[in-house]
Write a protein that binds this DNA or RNA. Structure first.
Lengths: 157, 157
DNA sequence: ATAAGACTAAGGTCAAAGAAAGTCAAAATA
DNA sequence: TATTTTGACTTTCTTTGACCTTAGTCTTAT
């Protein structure tokens, strides 16, 4: 007897295959279909569709809510995935962040203008905050922006 | 299932596009057309056509009453400078930040892709941090990105 | 002719109900 | 012990409806 989470994982992945890596679903509907608790869907998403595993999730609550799952294009964007999974840890200095963005530009993942914009978002000046928390916050922001760059392409495929 | 509020929003926006950003309508008529409660029109106006989102609403009750909606089209530089000097204070909520970025996109000051990138940088998730400091940090980042957009333009003028 | 008051035709407000999704930790299971 | 399953509780967003306010119109007494 396969674990239900594995079944749900496979189900979602087959849906993704049929729909070019992009998919929108209703949490309660899916939970109904598999006769499980709605929160199990969250568990499956958290453990099998994380960023490190190459997926991006967007969702909305309330009437007409949804969960959107994007499969990021993995092999095409090696460096970016490396950054997300190992390259950027919990903390990143300003210098390191700027270097990373420069390299992204040199490898033509982003335009010069986008690089300029991204840099502005990770500057010490932008983040304000004294303390060592700055480097944590910067890491979060940088990762989020890199994820957005990856997600954009999948989303508009 | 698309949210009715979104449908009404799009309907109004398309009317605005056809009429140079100015439009007068009858609340009950519109509610009839969409078969919804009249107060849902107010909900749509409040959540999607606020001043921050770039719209101005005037209305009149009683016989011959109406609701007038104006799209405020501002000059790019004026608007961005306004945001930096008054529009964005020391703190900004996630919602408010996303609305500002949406407006920049609707006014075509930035592309949709850039909007997506900028949004990713101001999300609660990106900033991490529980606490109320989030809104301060977000304000700093958003201002920094807006400054970068201004600087880029003048630099490449 | 006119001012007061009643009637009608709008739009406004607010709170409750409904419709999702998120979180977290306890319980169950492998 | 680690992973999975469940469920109670929370948060967010939307929809509905009862009640309120305001503007114009019509009657009527003076």
């Amino acid at each position: 007897m396969a674990r239900l989470s594995d079944v749900i994982e496979e189900f979602i992945k087959s849906l993704l295959r049929e729909s070019e890596g992009q998919l929108e679903l209703q949490r309660n509907e899916l939970a109904d279909y598999f006769e499980c608790a709605p929160s199990q869907i969250n568990y499956v998403l958290a453990t099998r569709f994380s960023l490190n595993q190459g997926y991006h999730i967007e969702s909305r609550r309330g009437g007409g809510g949804y969960i959107r799952i994007l499969r990021l294009d993995v092999d095409k964007n090696d460096y970016l995935h490396y950054l997300l999974s190992e390259g950027i840890g919990a903390k990143v200095s300003e210098q390191a962040a700027l270097q990373i963005i420069n390299r992204m530009k040199e490898q033509e993942y982003i335009t010069q203008k986008t690089a300029y914009l991204m840099k502005s978002a990770v500057l010490d000046k932008a983040i304000g905050m004294p303390s060592s928390l700055k480097d944590n916050i910067r890491a979060g922001i940088l990762k989020s922006m890199i994820t957005a760059i990856l997600a954009w392409d999948s989303r508009n495929a």
